[in-house]
Simulated assay, not measured.
Amino acid sequence: MSSTQHTDTLKNVRTISTLLYWVCAIAIIFQILVVPLVWYAPGWVEASTSQMTVSLADLHALSGWQKYVTMAVMMIPSLVLAYGLYRLRKMFGAFAHNAIFQPEPIRHLKAFGIALLAQTLIKPLTGAATSVLATFHRPAGERVLSIGLSNAEASTLFLGGLIIVIAWVLGEAARIDDENRSFV
């Protein structure tokens, strides 16, 4: 690779990383607000409710402690993913400042992969808890325990695992490169 191509590539990495740094900020805000929006702005989420284990009507019928506990349980996967996106944002910030093969952005990538994996594993459990909490007020025989799994969750599990392995490989490559530099 010529020096000009190398410079252009690094410039592109910095530019795209800066853009993705800000996209991650928007995604973090969305992750934090999505559950409250389900509760307080019904109608805008109708298309995404196919992933929910209970109906919006059941959620909106809740009051008191049930409403707040259910909302808190529903927030858990979103908050885990928001944390992962925060770490991804830090990685893009490091890339934007030329810290490409440094340990810090590699740790952020690994943390994002772990958060993605954790969120995917937690989501069916919180969905089941949400269905129980949302139907707890119903008479016996009408209460529901619902667990939702989809192909998207399986794909996300593999993606999270892939990101973790890539982070390990990059970490090892950076370590070997640092070791080789110390010999010269």
Rank of each mutant, 00 (worst) to 15 (best):
D58N: 07
V38R: 11
A94W: 01
A111V: 02
I29G: 01
V80D: 00
S3R: 14
T18R: 15
E46C: 02
A115E: 07
A152T: 11
A99Y: 09
N151I: 09
K123R: 12
S55H: 04
T120A: 09
E153Y: 05
E142S: 13
N180R: 15
A99F: 11
V38P: 00
F95V: 04
A134S: 07
M71P: 05
D178K: 15
T18F: 14
L88V: 01
I76T: 09
G160W: 06
R107L: 11
P139W: 09
H60A: 06
V80K: 00
V13M: 10
V132Q: 07
K11Q: 08
L85K: 03
K110F: 07
K123D: 12
A25V: 11
D8N: 14
Q31N: 15
I164S: 03
V80Q: 03
A96G: 01
P36T: 08
L37N: 06
L85M: 09
R181C: 08
A115F: 09
A174R: 04
L159I: 12
A152H: 08
D178N: 10
S150Q: 04
Q66N: 14
V45P: 00
E179I: 04
G160A: 06
I29W: 03
P103C: 12
A111S: 13
V69W: 10
I166C: 07
S182W: 05
I32L: 12
V54S: 06
V144F: 00
F136N: 11
L170G: 02
E172R: 13
F158I: 14
M91P: 00
A140C: 01
A82Y: 03
P105M: 12
L62Y: 01
S182I: 06
L62M: 08
L157G: 08
P105C: 10
V144L: 10
M91N: 04
N12C: 06
L33I: 08
M74L: 15
F30M: 08
A111E: 10
A61S: 15
K110D: 07
L157T: 08
W39Y: 10
F136G: 03
K11E: 03
L109Y: 00
S155E: 12
I29H: 05
L159C: 10
R181Q: 14
E142M: 13
K11W: 03
M91A: 11
M75N: 14
I176C: 07
R138I: 04
A128Q: 05
S182A: 15
G171R: 02
S155P: 00
N180H: 12
K110T: 04
A167I: 06
Q102N: 13
V80T: 06
L116V: 14
T70Q: 09
